[in-house]
């Protein structure tokens, strides 16, 4: 077993090295594709961090993403880049704590719509502020950040989200959250401080989303609320995570990667009919993969494990 672990760790390191060197070998398009893949991998995994164990479906992704992007739009030309990222992190965290404290007592069903309303509320407030106070809507971001920089930052973020997710799963916090997901009343009776646990996790997940928004912002030159607070991002992330399987750490990534590639393929091959085909493929996936990609993998393992044991016995 430990040999297997070692091999896995080595493979992970090698894979990481390959990914880190990728920008030096591929052209602008594949770099853009890789950025897209990383972006959704981080967003979906961060989403799964909170929503997987607690089973709260959050549509607030775009609220945090947009706040991150807007922080860069406002401060990007004024301050040093790391400082900008730090401020974005702080804003995202404070916002998440406030939102978490006020919303997490809602039942799962209403949390969905609440988080959606929240994203829209923040967007409207940003618009109102820009229109009436700063009198500009649509900010220009001219900062010295190349596509490669964006890629590497996202890669670091992706590693961070997996490491933190792995650590949480092994901590008391992770255990507490799984109990909350199973039955909140039981969790309370076990002496778990439900609110603290949920808010902590919600905040961690939100900080990642905020950072993705901040890192992506320099890619577009121009930020306006409809670009930063694009509601489809929230939906895409939920769909990706659910499709992959949100109850495992690596599940959302298994949804995010194939779906991003699929959207890309359809957009490239069927530009005029992509909507229709996307819909049909989506339905097929839903009917063919009832438990997400993770479920497929679990089934596969369940079928093959006995044989492997037999082989092991023979050897």
């Amino acid at each position: 077993m430990s040999a297997m672990r070692l091999a896995a760790a080595l493979a992970a390191c090698a894979g990481l090295a390959v990914l880190a060197l990728l920008p030096t070998y591929v052209d602008a398009y594949y770099l853009a594709l890789a950025i897209g893949l990383l972006q959704f991998t981080v967003l979906a995994t961060a989403w799964g961090l909170f929503s997987g164990p607690t089973r709260y479906v959050s549509l607030a992704t775009t609220a945090f993403f947009g706040v991150g992007a807007y922080t860069v739009a406002v401060l990007g030309e004024l301050l040093h880049w790391p400082l900008v990222l730090l401020i974005a992190t702080a804003i995202g965290a404070v916002m998440a704590v406030v939102v978490g404290l006020s919303t997490l007592r809602l039942s799962g069903l209403h949390f969905v719509i609440f988080t959606f309303g929240l994203a829209e509320l923040i967007r409207q407030l940003v618009i109102w502020f820009e229109v009436n106070k700063s009198r500009v809507l649509g900010r220009y971001v001219f900062v010295d950040i190349t596509q490669k920089d964006i890629y590497w930052q996202l890669l670091v973020l992706a590693v961070a989200v997996f490491v933190i997710g792995w650590l949480i799963a092994r901590s008391r916090l992770g255990f507490a959250l799984r109990i909350i997901g199973e039955d909140e009343t039981v969790a309370k009776h076990c002496g778990i401080n439900v609110t603290v646990a949920k808010v902590t996790l919600f905040t961690i997940s939100a900080v990642f989303m905020t950072l993705v928004g901040a890192i992506m912002a320099p890619r577009w030159t121009y930020i306006e609320p409809s670009i930063a607070f694009n509601a489809t991002i929230s939906f895409e992330v939920v769909i990706m995570a659910l499709l992959g399987g949100a109850h495992r750490l690596w599940g959302p990534a298994l949804g995010a990667i194939p779906l991003t590639l699929l959207f890309e393929f359809l957009a490239a091959r069927f530009p005029t009919a992509s909507t229709l085909i996307m819909g049909v493929i989506f339905l097929l996936i839903v009917y063919a993969l009832p438990a997400g990609v993770v479920g497929l993998w679990d089934n596969f393992r369940r079928q093959w494990r006995p044989q492997r044991v037999e082989q092991g016995a023979k050897a």
């Binding site: 799962g108 996936i285 839903v286």
Partner: peptide, 25 residues
């Protein structure tokens, strides 16, 4: 109920694209 909600979100999300695609064409 939760499982049905997740499935229906996914399925109707696909349906949304189909209806929209038909209207676009």
């Amino acid at each position: 109920r939760g499982a049905l909600e997740v499935d229906s979100i996914l399925a109707t999300f696909g349906m949304m694209f189909i209806v929209q695609g038909i209207m676009l064409s």
